[in-house]
């Protein structure tokens, strides 16, 4: 069976005077729909890697394939509909909450899944939201969940989640985790989830990708990674204070 997503020797250079690569030799294969936690200290290029997988940043060397089709050979629009990136800083499009949720339907002229939206809004803790409200007036946490829901309506094969629960309170965070877990099971969507919340990573993922020392240092089952990390860097990372993510260069 062709792998869902395959990364081969992926490299990203830094911009500016620094000639050292941000990361290199990043190779991994996702053979079946998975929940992957992408971990690592700040500045390792986790967000950049997600953006490269979503064809938003250039792959300087190496290749990324979806069902064995290289990103470079696929129409970027078709690629992004299948491999969708959800940004850490949610951006609301101009207009109401509903217009934001209708974005996918509008862009691709496909029916708007009203029933699904009505079903998911309360499950994301957004039952109180007026759909006619100007999306720009939502709180950070509300924007983050609307932005996530907007991307779910695209029904991508691979969902790239960049700290999507960072500005949520504990209750909302758990709701989002639950919705995404169920979505993964029901839809078979692969999720690559950048997080700094180790407890979250332990709960939601079956696989951990750990970035350190300028590469993908570990790629192992979640239990293996947390019980017996293979590298000193990963051990230090897990013992260190749970650091807040700094905005990554992208």
């Amino acid at each position: 069976m062709k792998p869902v997503l395959e990364l081969q020797q992926v490299k990203k250079n830094r911009t500016g005077a620094d000639t050292r690569p941000l990361f290199m030799d990043v190779s991994a294969q996702i053979t079946e729909p998975s929940m992957i936690a992408l971990l690592g200290v700040s500045g390792q290029g986790k967000s950049t890697l997600l953006r490269m997988l979503a064809a938003l940043d250039r792959i300087d060397e190496g290749s990324v394939r979806l069902h064995d089709v290289p990103q470079s050979e696929m129409d970027p629009k078709a690629w992004r509909m299948k491999v969708c990136y959800v940004a850490q800083q949610p951006v609301m499009l101009q207009g109401s909450v509903e217009q934001n949720l209708r974005a996918v339907s509008f862009l691709h002229r496909i029916p708007y899944e009203d029933k699904l939206v009505k079903q998911l809004l309360p499950r994301l803790g957004l039952e109180h939201l007026e759909l006619g409200k100007n999306a720009e007036l939502l709180s950070g946490g509300e924007k983050q969940r609307i932005s996530l829901l907007r991307s779910l309506l695209l029904r991508p094969e691979v969902l790239l989640l960049d700290e999507v629960t960072a500005s949520l309170d504990r209750g909302s965070k758990e709701l989002v985790e639950q919705v995404l877990q169920e979505w993964h099971t029901a839809e078979g969507t692969t999720m690559i989830w950048v997080t700094h919340d180790l407890e979250q990573a332990r709960q939601i993922s079956g696989q951990v990708w750990f970035m350190g020392e300028g590469t993908l240092l570990e790629n192992s089952a979640t239990t293996t990674f947390f019980d017996s990390p293979a590298t000193e860097t990963a051990r230090n990372y897990m013992q260190g204070p749970a650091s807040k993510e700094q905005p990554c260069l992208s």
Partner: peptide, 12 residues
Amino acid sequence: GEIETLLSLGAT
């Protein structure tokens, strides 16, 4: 941010 959000939703 706005342009890239639309791109990531598969916009032309």
